[in-house]
Amino acid sequence: MIILDELESQSIYILREAYREFKSLCMLWSIGKDSTVLLYLARKAFFGHVPMPLVHIDTRYKIPEMIEYRDNLVKEWKLNLIYGMNRKAIDEKRTFPDGNVDRLTCCKSLKSDALRQTLNGEGERFIFSHSAGKYIPDTSREAYTGVIVGVRADEEGSRSKERYFSPRDSESDWRIEDQPPEFWNQYKTDFSSGTHVRIHPLLDWTELNIWEYIERENIGVVSLYFDKGEGIRYRSLGCYPCTKPVESKSKNVPEIIEELRSGRFSNIAERSGREQDKDGGGTLETLRREGYM
């Protein structure tokens, strides 16, 4: 069996397990290539439908093209999109670099805290109304107990230890030293109240697998990934103050694949353009223990 077929089947199996086991389920969509592939896999798993809401955490520092792309796809695929943010931190300018905090603190409040509040229903949420054609306040305060996330084990160290079904306590804390066993394709689907479970269908995919699949299935991704003639493109997407484009002349998917297979990126980490990974050892593990994606 071809590796992409294997990965696709495994991801679909995990998505279907999640849908069967969790009554209150959502899927995080960061607009990046991975979670967009995940969204496409959900449509495969559920025969053209996406039967769970998509949650996007808006930091107000996302590259504008990402938001535009998000809203276009929401309309085209009739997606149920909910976004949340840490408005208080944004209003109080507890941000980087124009505020008075460092990168890590900014990541923690605009992403980890925002995510926690959005998922548990304490924070403000906005939902796209297809009849009104705009976002309206979400009146539901429902807490999500199952959260599907598109992280991959090859991205960085702490993600390499993840489970496919990974429980977090009510504070979103990840107990990395005591993770539940996962034997074969049997995952932890029983949990006490107060915990929620992160579900990771893309854990075994590599960056190259993602691009090969995008090519094979002809999945549209945001154009920031491609060089538009200036010799730069984004390899990984995030907030603009902390995400730098990389030097690359890849203008389309096949060129990116070639670059990853044998070209100049075959031995350079994907997140090398992401600044929050660089502040000393174990930074991202610290962030992730506290609920970062």
């Binding site: 996962e182 049997q186 932890k188």
Partner: peptide, 9 residues
């Protein structure tokens, strides 16, 4: 097969 005791495999 797996066996679940309480909430844990």
């Amino acid at each position: 097969f797996v066996i679940v005791d309480g909430y844990e495999i």
